[in-house]
Structures are given as structure tokens and as C-alpha cells.
Design a protein around this nucleic acid. Structure first.
Length: 423
DNA sequence: TCTGGGGTCCTAGGACCC
DNA sequence: TCTGGGGTCCTAGGACCC
């Protein structure tokens, strides 16, 4: 029988901020999305105040006065760096890992010869805590979906000590499934939750007993896989080899909506350059550049428009120049005057490795490494992002996002590295 | 006044081919 | 004009994840 673990960082973004700002310990804290728009991470104290995931900042702002709520703008450089540190500790200790997201990692526990798995995992947990300051919880089960449920319970039940193994006892599994609302099952979102509840399926246990024909008809093969996993049949394996991504998107909401072509163009130039840079870092080329721009969907009182256009490159490329040119061609195709644009983005599709670019008689010779691009990337890695830029967009352009409360990049910018003082 | 960003996979329908 | 089956590729949309 396969044995999966999942290690999940508790309130990850908040924990990252706390590991450098101990004053945040014990207080209700939220991390805000780009533009300081809504809460995307909450400490347990903030959750206890009733702050929900995605709560708009303007609706919870009053809690700063009444409850001592602290808000920080998101700082992805910090979170990405701490994530890497946590992941490498985990990878060091178990036979194989699959980094599933910035704060989650599946563990292959199949051939781990330890006398007491739960105790051993508690040790791993405190090591991560000690070396990074990040608290994690670990769930274990015969499938990924059951491991996720175990993790959830490990996090919420004080007795578990941060670790719960559901692989050994069927009776524990039954209790766990009965205690888990169907909405908490991995793979069941709000739409399917509604569907399930309407049909009397309220817990993970109910779903695991649901009729196959019904599940297939209503939730397709994807839903059926989830049900199989709840029954202990491992449908999803551990994917230790990270597959190449299939798309790459850079998009932002603007700090302020704008109807000016020049603003949207400047933003798209930056997004296209950023997307191309990501691609080069991953060693990939894009075949298609898609751009989109849209109005503010929350402003029902204003005319709405959402346009997109895709431009096929003559041959796959990761050159900022070519990708920017294609994005601007796309912008001209989708552009409509007199709309207040609130968000725009660039999506790169049909990604391939250079060695896999399909060729035929008429294709141009393979792209030579673009020396301008590699020079640019070197400058950027040495002097920081934004050192060299395409276009001349003003740093204070109105479309730029608001980030009033961002913490310093403690671990990734020399200027921001904290200094220790001996007193 | 103020509501994020970046992904994956599956399905249905249409165009087109043999 | 009518008649059939089967395949591929593409796109748009919808579900999910973090």
C-alpha cells in the first residue's frame, strides 16, 4: 500500500511575516492581496475574529481599531524564499517529495523504515520550526486525498500535536471522514458542495459512499477520482519530477481604472517583459501570446467590457522584444475606446523546450540564444528587478498597484537584511 | 471610494478530414 | 439529394487548486 504524507505550512504568509517580526506573534494578522484589496492569509487570531478568506480590506479595516488587527501587504519575494528553505529541509529527510504549492509538499513515506512514523514526523515538524520559524502540520494517508483530510484534522485538533496518521486504522478513517464536511474535501469546491448538499451528501463519509453512476454523471471523471481516493484507491501518484508548465501568466489589477490607451499599453509592456523573463528562467519558449484587458466587474454602474486576443509567433520565442511586440499587436486588436480598464494581463501558451520545437521545411532556423536577453537577465539578477526596463513607464503611474504596508525583503535584498545588535 | 494572481484538467461543440 | 461512422484539432467555458 502506498503511503502519502502532506506537509502544510500553517497560515503560511502570516508565519513568514512573523518569523521576522515577533511583535506580530499572538496578534490577529492578515496579509493583503496585491493592491491591498483583500485578505489572502489570516492568523488563527484573525480567523477567530471572523475574518474570512478573501474578505475585502475596506470591510475589515475597522478591526484595526477595535481588535488590534494588523495588516501587511503581501511580500512574495519573502514567502518564496522561506518556502524554498522549508521544502529543502523536507526533501532532505524523506525518499521523495512533490512540491505542490508555495506552502504544501507531498511526502513519499513508502519505504521509510522508522519504528514510530507519527513520532518521527513530529520530530521533522519541530526541526522545520526550529530552522525556519515556520510551523507546519503533517497528515498521512493511503491516498493524497485522505492525507489532506488527515492534515486538516492534525491542524485543528490539539491532541494530534501537528501530526495525524490515518493510514493504519479503518475505524479512525471512518471517524475522520464523518467529521469532515464535504466542502473540506480536496477537489470539492463551492459549486460541487452545493450540488452534494442538495443531494444529502454532507460529509466526506457521505461522498465516499455516493453512487458511482450519480457521481460520474454530475461531477464527471474528476469527481469520480476524488471519490475513489476517499475510498482508499490511490488515483494520484507522487510526482517527484516537476513537469514543465503549460502556460505562464502575468496580470494585475490596476491601482486605478484607466481609459487611456497609453496606460494600458505601458502596463502590458511590463507584464509581457516579466512573462518573457519567467519563461527564460524556466528554459521555455512560447508559441502563442495572448493578451486581455477588462473593466471593473464590481462596478455594475459602469459599462463592462472584457477583450482578449491571441497572436501566434512565427516561431516559438522567449525574447522580450518579440513577446512585447506580439502583446501590443494583440492590444490593438482588442482595444475599445471609452472603457475604464481595471485589469490587464499577458498569457504565454504553447510552451516548449527549445529542443522540442517542431520543425518543418519552411520553419526558420532555430532561434539563436538572444544575447541582449541574457545580458538583461544578468543585469537584473545582479542589480535587482527593474534595473533595466523596456519602455519608460513612470514608477508612479496610476495603474501601478498599491502596496502601502509591505514588509522589507528580509532575505532577498541586501538593503533589507536585518542587522543583529548586541546590547 | 475600496473586492488578487497564477495555475491545471475536462468537456462540449464546431470545423474539417477520410 | 440522401445516407454513416470515426477521427483530429481547436476553442470556449467551467470546474477545481493554492
Amino acid at each position: 500500500m502506498a503511503l502519502f504524507g502532506i506537509a502544510d505550512c500553517n497560515n503560511f504568509y502570516v508565519s513568514c511575516e512573523r518569523s521576522f517580526q515577533p511583535r506580530l506573534e499572538g496578534r490577529p494578522v492578515v496579509v493583503l492581496s496585491n493592491n491591498d484589496g483583500c485578505a489572502i492569509a489570516r492568523s488563527s487570531e484573525a480567523k477567530a475574529l471572523g475574518v474570512s478568506m478573501g474578505a475585502p480590506w475596506f470591510k475589515i479595516r475597522h478591526l484595526t481599531e477595535t481588535e488590534g488587527l494588523v495588516a501587511v501587504s503581501s511580500n512574495y519575494a519573502l514567502y518564496g524564499d522561506l518556502s524554498m528553505r522549508v521544502m529543502s529541509i523536507l526533501a532532505d529527510q524523506v525518499p521523495a517529495t512533490e512540491v505542490y504549492s508555495i506552502d504544501e509538499c507531498f511526502l513519499d513515506l513508502d519505504n521509510l523504515a522508522v519504528p514510530d512514523l507519527t513520532e518521527w514526523l513530529r520530530g521533522l515538524r519541530s526541526r522545520v520550526r526550529q530552522w525556519t520559524g515556520i510551523p507546519i502540520s503533517i497528515g498521512v494517508g493511503p491516498t493524497k486525498t485522505l492525507a489532506k483530510i488527515a492534515n486538516h484534522l492534525a491542524k485543528t485538533s490539539p491532541k494530534a500535536g501537528g501530526v495525524l496518521d490515518l493510514s493504519r486504522r479503518a475505524d479512525w478513517r471512518e471517524i475522520a471522514l464523518k467529521r469532515t464536511p464535504v466542502s473540506d474535501v480536496w477537489g470539492i469546491g463551492w459549486q460541487w458542495t452545493g450540488l452534494c448538499v442538495m443531494n444529502g451528501i454532507r460529509t466526506a463519509w457521505d461522498l465516499h459512499q455516493a453512487d458511482d453512476g450519480w457521481v460520474r454523471a454530475k461531477m464527471g471523471t474528476v469527481g469520480m477520482r476524488t471519490v475513489m481516493e476517499l475510498r482508499g484507491v490511490a488515483v494520484h501518484g507522487l510526482e517527484a519530477e516537476a513537469a514543465d508548465r503549460q502556460s505562464c501568466c502575468v496580470s494585475r489589477s490596476f491601482g486605478e481604472a484607466t481609459a487611456e490607451y497609453g496606460h494600458v499599453r505601458d502596463a502590458l509592456v511590463e507584464y509581457a517583459a516579466a512573462a518573457a523573463g519567467k519563461l527564460r528562467r524556466d528554459g521555455l519558449l512560447a508559441g502563442i501570446v495572448q493578451v486581455f484587458a477588462m473593466t471593473d466587474r464590481f462596478r455594475r454602474d459602469l459599462p463592462q467590457y472584457s477583450g482578449s486576443a491571441s497572436v501566434t509567433l512565427s516561431s516559438p520565442s522567449a525574447s522580450s522584444r518579440e513577446i512585447i511586440a506580439a502583446a501590443l499587436k494583440g492590444l490593438d486588436r482588442l482595444w475599445k475606446e471609452k472603457f475604464a480598464y481595471r485589469k490587464a494581463g499577458v498569457i504565454l501558451l504553447d510552451l516548449v523546450r527549445p529542443e522540442n520545437v517542431p520543425r518543418d521545411l519552411f520553419s526558420p532556423p532555430p532561434e539563436k540564444p538572444d544575447s541582449l536577453m541574457s545580458a538583461l537577465d544578468r543585469i537584473e539578477s545582479r542589480f535587482g528587478r527593474g534595473g533595466v526596463r523596456f519602455g519608460l513607464a513612470r514608477p508612479d503611474a496610476p495603474w501601478r498597484m498599491r502596496q502601502a504596508m509591505r514588509s522589507p525583503c528580509w532575505t532577498t535584498r541586501w538593503e533589507d537584511v536585518p542587522t543583529a545588535r548586541l546590547e
